[in-house]
Design a binder for these strands. Structure first.
Length: 499
RNA sequence: GGCGCUAUCGUCUAGGGGUUAGGACGGGUGAUUCUCAGUCACUAAACCGGGGUUCGAAUCCCCGUAGCGCUACCA
């Protein structure tokens, strides 16, 4: 399948810089790239933009890989995957960038700039003071250097950068696939730095050179890059290369309308994993932030997203990250999942929560049944583990409020009677147990609730949870009777101290 | 300050010259039940403001306002 825009099989790339963890905004950009590539039968490249040595973090790199894999966004080319366009770390391509910067120098489209940081700072301060209406930015001081001056400075080993010669006063126009035509006046643009004095390229140079060399057809990136795009257009032009197509994704905002940050709701992708979210839920939620397939469809598998995805339907407006809806969606996907598939992840939570580890945890079949009791009433994986502790050890205490309500003196005899009946009950299945309870209640002339609530509290220590009879069935006869006895003794002791 | 982008219920969005402006989350009410959830039903809730264009504007154009982005030898 070829794409409708320029007839070539699309090649896209996700190009994070390893300066921090992959957060949901980045994940959404990666997702849109992935969906676009898959929809058109194209290629999805992962490229690491690590040209800023000062901000590089090795852990961040690992986390980016782990996050993308967890979400199921497998890249076709990139680190670990290989490919013809490699290497995929920009820090390993510095020779390439230098060569290309030289090429621009030779063509007279760029020049060496020896200005010190000091001079630049002073210049900016003066511009600030003069409140220059426009055209603030580098004053092009070194553009006027003669060849002899440059040669002398070079001979003296003077540190320098390479800057692009930006044309004076011209419209730079490009078409954003989501917003339409966007135009900038080149007079607004700086003579931007292409190669830094440490020999590393700036984002702008590396980005353009790599996108060209890797034959990228569509640049789908966050909309904070819109203002950089005219600069990139000028670089393509200086090289004489045809530019790719651009589409800028709207940003994702925090609930208060501000920027997404760790402090404000949006953590890294892996934090959502740790918090008990399912990848399919996060993906489905994220795809709806800035895109909709049309109509009323919301719940979609990855394959359905791929089939329906199109850039034309991507929203231009920033979207607010609504954690509540994510939770709802996660609950939905939790219900869809089998007990079996949930087991490893719930087990991790149990192992953290239940120390020392109860022997019952080793019984996989039992664990699966417990999960079955909780997955439909939970929103996150962690909740399944948090609320099910009593399936692995007897309650250490009873919820005080519930105890006041359900553990009364007259409950004593009820629990005793129930213990007796339960001991004789066979089979110990949920329907049979319910039948037994209704029968006993009737015999006593009491509403079934009078039996059910104390039993629940005795068996679990809390007053909320799965249906009582399903719970008793999973717990098993021996455990249930033991807990009923424990509760009986507890009530008796409480009654004594009161007197 | 300059430049740019954006604007439909609280939130995500559908629609797009003539509609009772639709759906989802969240809220409210009710039903179900042994609790909590869940599920189901019902319900309140929106076209930023002003000018044009037009028989007709939420929809197209302009202006304003607000929000956001960029304005680095960061990405």
């Amino acid at each position: 399948m070829s794409n409708p825009e320029n007839g070539r099989v699309p090649v896209v790339r996700f190009a994070p810089s390893p300066t921090g963890y992959l957060h949901v905004g980045g994940a959404r950009t990666a997702l849109f790239n992935f969906l676009f590539a898959r929809h058109h039968g194209g290629k999805f490249i992962l490229r690491i933009e690590d040209t800023d040595q000062k901000r590089f973090q090795a852990e961040a790199l690992q986390e980016i890989f782990t996050s993308l894999k967890w979400l199921g966004l497998q890249w076709d080319e990139g680190p670990e995957a290989g490919g013809e366009g490699g290497p995929y770390f920009q820090s390993q391509r510095t020779e390439t960038y230098r060569r290309h910067a030289d090429q621009l120098l030779a063509a007279g489209r760029a020049y060496r700039c020896f200005c010190s940081e000091d001079r630049l700072t002073r210049m900016r301060a003066e511009q600030e003071k003069a409140k220059m209406a426009n055209g603030s930015g580098y004053d092009r001081h070194c553009r006027l250097l003669t060849e002899a001056e440059v040669a002398a400075l070079l001979a003296a080993n003077a540190p320098h950068v390479i800057r692009l010669k930006v044309p004076d006063d011209r419209a730079v126009v490009f078409r954003d696939l989501i917003r339409g035509e966007i135009s900038y006046d080149s007079a607004q643009l700086d003579d931007l730095v292409l190669l830094k004095s440490d020999g590393f390229p700036t984002y702008h140079l590396a980005n353009v050179v790599d996108d060209y060399l890797m034959r990228v057809t569509h640049v789908l990136r966050g909309d904070e890059w819109i203002a950089s795009t005219p600069k990139h257009m000028l670089i393509y032009e200086a090289f004489g290369w045809p530019p790719p197509l651009f589409a800028h994704m709207p940003v994702i905002l925090a609930a208060d309308g501000g920027k997404l940050s760790k402090r404000r709701g949006a953590a890294s992708v892996l934090d959502y994993q740790r918090a008990g979210y399912l990848p399919e839920a996060l993906l489905n939620f994220l795809v709806l932030l800035g895109w909709a397939p049309g109509g009323d469809r919301e719940i979609m598998t990855l394959d359905e997203m791929i089939a329906a995805f199109s850039l034309e339907r991507v929203q231009a407006k920033a979207a607010v990250f609504d954690e509540t809806k994510l939770e709802w969606m996660n609950g939905h996907y939790l219900q869809q999942r089998s007990e079996e598939s949930l087991l490893p992840e719930v087990m991790v939570c149990w192992e953290k929560l239940l120390l020392p580890l109860p022997a019952a945890l080793a019984d996989k079949a039992y664990a699966r049944r417990v999960i079955g009791l909780f997955k439909d009433r939970s929103k996150k994986i962690i909740e399944i583990a948090e609320n099910s502790g009593y399936f692995f050890r007897d309650p250490a205490a009873y919820d005080p409020q519930a105890a006041r309500k359900y553990f009364k003196r007259e409950t004593l005899s009820i629990l005793e009677l129930l213990s007796e009946k339960l001991a004789a009950q066979e089979p110990f299945g949920r329907e049979a147990l319910e039948g037994l309870y209704r029968q006993v209640a009737e015999g006593l002339g009491l509403p079934a609730g009078k039996l059910i609530h104390p039993t629940r509290l005795a068996a679990s220590g809390v007053s909320s949870g799965p249906g009582l009879f399903a719970m008793l069935e999973v717990l098993g006869k021996e455990t249930v009777i033991r807990r009923l006895q424990n509760a009986r003794n507890w009530i008796a002791a409480a009654a004594d101290t009161k007197e």
